[in-house]
Design a protein around this nucleic acid. Structure first.
Lengths: 190, 190
DNA sequence: AACGTAGTACTACATTTGGAGTGGTGTCAA
DNA sequence: TTGACACCACTCCAAATGTAGTACTACGTT
């Protein structure tokens, strides 16, 4: 088992792209090698088996989807009212949609996790933490709404992103925009 | 190309199970043969190629997820108020969750459709029709809320089902129940 | 009632594909 | 000089495809 951490990370990031492009079943050592532009056989040296590869990707993917420090800091600026909330949610949807392959890869992982208990455990942990962090962050921010608002928004926006990424012709850009606004407005109404 | 319609349907239904169990990449002629308990090579005779198989499954899956006539008729009975609406949404979530493999298969198809234009066209058409039908049905029912309510509910409940099917430990049964109630209540608040 | 035919089911096989894993060699740096 | 890693090549294995050939069944014809 090789230990070079940069190379390992590069392989995992390549695996994310492969997942998005080829699907879970297409995530093979050889495909990762090709995507990362390293010689065939390399991924074999870095991951014990496919299960291991999936689990490591599951551990990493979430880091890449979350906003960075600067973005989080920026989100705390300005008046924290409903309009601001909507603005933040638009940014969120755009940011996630922009890292297209990351989100698709996460969906692939979710489906794959129905067959891989270890992966499921990793994802469950990460996602629970994320939801809790969102609720906590919201509570501390002074933004309107309660914890149920946060979760309802989480639900609606997630599917909106799925819809946009998998079947982009269902909703127009305009409709997506209006739906984000409506989701914010109505979620906040306790 | 064989024509026996019952056999074809049995193969497609088997394909749905395979999709849910093995994922999109695992949907092979041989796997369908095995799942349908027919001799190997049979599926080859019924579908021109994998693309054809995907497309035909995409055409059928939605029929199996939609409520039957009796259920629709029943949904129109009684007072059509917010409480009733919530009741119907609980039934919806339970019904879809119960046909577990169907919903997972649809998710697999969505992801696969990013790679198969023909499949994407079929799914887009079906899902547009479904959303429009829901909006129309809602308008005629006398239930409270506007068309945006219907779509927001569609978004939130879809992801709630995804969450429940792929990572069942994220929300408890109790939380799922409360989220459905909250989603109905808040979506209706224009 | 016997026959012929068409469509389908079943079986077997030849071929292709692609991936896993490993061992050997080269290279670089401590 | 030694150890860790990159690179490359080769073998083995598993699985799927598509089709050719045979058997069965139902139905229409005479």
């Amino acid at each position: 088992m090789r230990r070079n951490p940069e190379r390992r990370q590069a392989l995992i990031d390549a695996a994310i792209e492969v997942l998005a492009k080829e699907g879970a079943r297409g995530l093979t050592f050889r495909a990762v090698d090709a995507e990362a532009a390293v010689p065939p056989g390399t991924a074999s040296n870095y991951f014990a088996n496919r299960d291991d590869l999936f689990t490591q990707v599951g551990g990493r993917i979430y880091e890449r989807l979350l906003p960075d420090e600067a973005t989080i800091a920026r989100s705390r600026e300005g008046v924290q009212d409903e309009t601001r909330y909507a603005e933040l949610m638009h940014e969120l949807v755009d940011r996630v949609s922009a890292f297209n392959s990351g989100y698709l890869a996460l969906l692939e992982l979710r489906l794959e996790s129905t067959r891989r208990p270890e992966l499921r455990a990793v994802l469950t942990k990460r996602i629970r933490e994320d939801i809790d962090a969102n609720v906590g962050h919201h509570a501390a921010s002074g933004l309107p709404g309660d914890s149920t608002s946060v979760v309802l928004l989480y639900l609606a926006l997630n599917w909106l992103i799925v819809e946009r990424l998998t079947l982009p012709d269902i909703f127009t850009e305009q409709e997506v925009h209006e739906l984000v606004d409506a989701a914010v407005r109505r979620s906040l109404n306790a």
